[in-house]
Computed example of a mutant assay.
Amino acid sequence: MANFTIADIKALREQLGTGMVDTKKALEEAEGDLEKAVEILRLKGAKGNAKRADRSTSEGLIAAREQDGKVTLIELNTETDFVAKNDRFIALSEQVLDAAAAAGADSAEAALASDAGGKSVADLISDEAAIIGEKVELRRVRTLTGDAFQVYLHKTSKDLPPQVGVVVAYSGDDAETARSIAQHISFANPTYLSRDEVPEADVEKERDIVTEISRNEGKPEAALPKIVEGRVNAFFKQVALLDQDYAKDNKLSVAKVAADAGITITGFARFKVGA
């Protein structure tokens, strides 16, 4: 008979979050040696990680942390919403966020290489994924600097952790308007802060497309330049935050709202799980 008790099984399950059957089998194989059983379970989980490598991770959460005059935003993914709302997964996200924020990481690669209590974040995620039983992936990380910040985390379901996260960096004193602009970003999903940041190649490609569309519509050649510029301006309203119509009052641009509030938006980041 194996040299372990029900209390040993319970203690190991609480430590690792593993299933009853797997825990009992590991203790039997380890002949009651708890440390060896932990090693067996971790090795089994690591093999499971390799098998799960090609699985899709379309669920997860967004989390943010302000630290030392910076805000770090992460997207941590997993396979199912069941795991996404699990306490162990949420605790893992906090550990990953702590490490990424402490390192000032501005990419997933930098965050994965950062220290998390004596091991890399990559190893931490691998170890926890082995226990959780699903593929876990740190998809995106951004760190913003600025004079002030507003963080907006949005839940698309009350049963799940935040699925959309926005950080706005700004200067000025109107925190309420800055937060409202963060909410606008969560809805409008701009790509750039201003039209000046849009790559010229993208602008020229859009100009070529709308020129062809306008000609195919039979627009007069003499009127094409004005029509094309109007459509290019519409493109800027889609991709550039400051050009966008403000969600709460579409008669105003975001730039106008910010100026009226005496604030200057200096940067933003927006993540949506799986998008």
Rank of each mutant, 00 (worst) to 15 (best):
L43C: 04
A63H: 01
K219P: 02
V121W: 01
A223P: 02
L193I: 12
P225H: 09
G45T: 06
R195I: 05
L76N: 06
A175F: 06
A255H: 01
F89W: 07
K248V: 04
Q238E: 15
V96K: 12
A91Y: 06
E75Q: 12
V239R: 06
D115W: 06
I132E: 02
A247F: 10
S93E: 00
D260C: 10
S58W: 02
A63I: 00
G69T: 11
S253M: 08
D115H: 05
I132M: 08
E66A: 14
I9M: 07
A101G: 11
S180N: 14
G165V: 00
E217R: 11
E212D: 14
D260S: 14
E134S: 03
D127N: 13
E79Y: 01
L73P: 05
D147V: 08
P161W: 00
K155A: 03
E14Q: 11
K119Q: 14
S214Y: 00
N49F: 13
V151E: 11
K135D: 11
T5C: 10
V121P: 03
F236M: 14
V257I: 14
V257R: 08
K256Q: 14
E134L: 05
E197Q: 15
V151G: 02
M20F: 15
V210D: 09
Q15P: 03
E204C: 07
A110P: 02
A99Y: 04
P190K: 10
I6P: 05
A269E: 15
V198L: 10
L241R: 05
V96Y: 09
N49C: 10
E35P: 04
E128R: 00
Q67P: 05
N216C: 00
G262P: 13
I209N: 06
A178H: 10
I227P: 00
V141D: 03
E59Q: 13
N3Y: 12
K158F: 04
D123K: 13
P190W: 08
L27M: 14
R231D: 02
K205G: 01
S58P: 00
L124I: 09
I132N: 01
F89K: 03
F149D: 00
D245A: 13
E137T: 12
V21K: 15
S56Y: 13
D98L: 12
T191M: 10
L124Y: 00
V164H: 04
K135R: 15
G165D: 06
A30C: 09
E29C: 11
K44C: 01
Q163L: 08
G262T: 14
D127E: 15
L34C: 07
L224A: 08
V273R: 07
M1G: 15
L76W: 05
K119A: 12
K25D: 15
G262E: 04
E206M: 15
Y246Q: 02
E31G: 10
V257T: 14
F268T: 13
V273Y: 09
